[in-house]
Design a protein around this nucleic acid. Structure first.
Lengths: 194, 194
DNA sequence: AAAATACATGAGTGACCATTCAAGAACAAG
DNA sequence: CTTGTTCTTGAATGGTCACTCATGTATTTT
């Protein structure tokens, strides 16, 4: 009986995600979202009750499902080792240096901009950090078993440090997107493990 | 001849800085600043031409001069070594775990929230990162000379990694202010150097 | 074709935004 | 005391914010 919806909600979330990613939550207005999606306010609010904030949370989840796996790449494969770990960091650096990647990571931005005042957003960020830590622990364990890093490196502890280091890499990259600096950070982070 | 000013500009900047620190640039309204400082809009704009943005830049500089040296503490002394380096990281962790320190570092928050769109703010952040790197390089050099870390640790490179790690520590701390996690990051960051 | 249903539209809501400005007030010099 | 200068005040500006709702529309069932 009902008139069918003329837009695909997932597509709307995708476009909203891009806006939140590039501009941040506060700096993105509902009017921005209307322009970006082509969906008028009324339809937006009826399709996403809760409005801007709901759309933001859905954007975070969509980012986790769509963008994060692509960035992690082989690092999430069960037998990832040092090469995959290094590949992830190198990918971060080249992203930060490219015009399309300057915005960094939506989840890192969210940690800083919203985590203190938005528990739901903070929970998504915590999930992401745990996921990162998990696959880095695995990769570091394999790296140690294969002799790719010093035997004295503790995979669980080292992974926690690497998680922090890659978050910090993005903070530094935002303020100072300089190839020499970013590559030096990665080079030395791995040199210390070898 | 002129009527004397009834407020101290430095005090106004101090109070504005606290607001920007706790709430961020965008989330702090001029009305907030008026309430916090007791200075009415007209006076605020005549004392700080450029308004909110000028006050923000002055806040960043004041943070660098007032808050940062207090956080760095002995790490800025010319003969700082591993103890001072470790002390700085421990201080960061206990700040992030205390109600008064949850807001993290104004300059890290600024790197994420404003650096991409505000070159002047980004420049202040870059200065801060360079300052951190400089004193960490010195401290790490002394630590190596004194045998407090492995001889294979490169002070300049290691400092770059530590800078990134402490920025990342604050990202993690914002999303997940958990003592066990934060202490594990610091413990392992130093374990890797030993 | 008529009724029922959900969707699309976009002007409208009041609140808040950063900023300005006209008016009055306080001081110092003459 | 008068005049000149700067400061203080707070109402007013025009804009934008997130959000709502009455109206019209498209589709399916009867």
């Amino acid at each position: 009986m009902p008139r069918p919806r003329e837009f695909e909600p997932d597509t709307v979330v995708d476009q909203a995600m891009l806006r939140f990613w590039w501009q941040g939550y506060r700096a993105t207005s509902v009017e921005d979202l209307v322009k970006a999606t082509g969906v008028k306010p009324g339809s937006l609010y009826s399709a996403f009750p809760g409005g801007k904030h709901t759309l933001f949370l859905k954007s975070l989840e969509r980012y986790s499902k769509l963008v994060v796996p692509q960035k992690l790449g082989e690092l999430e494969s069960p037998d990832a080792g040092l090469a995959e770990l290094r590949g992830y960091f190198d990918g971060l650096v080249s992203d930060l240096l490219s015009p399309e990647g300057r915005q960094g990571c939506l989840l890192v931005n969210t940690a800083i901009e919203n985590a203190a005042e938005d528990d739901e957003a903070a929970a998504v960020v915590r999930g992401h950090l745990a996921r990162l830590e998990r696959c880095m622990t695995t990769a570091l364990g394999h790296a140690r078993d294969r002799g790719e890093v010093r035997a004295s490196v503790d995979p669980a502890g080292g992974a926690k440090v690497l998680v922090a280091t890659c978050q910090g890499l993005m903070v530094v990259g935002k303020a100072n997107p300089d190839a020499t600096m970013l590559r030096a950070i990665v080079d030395n982070a791995f040199a210390v493990l070898a």
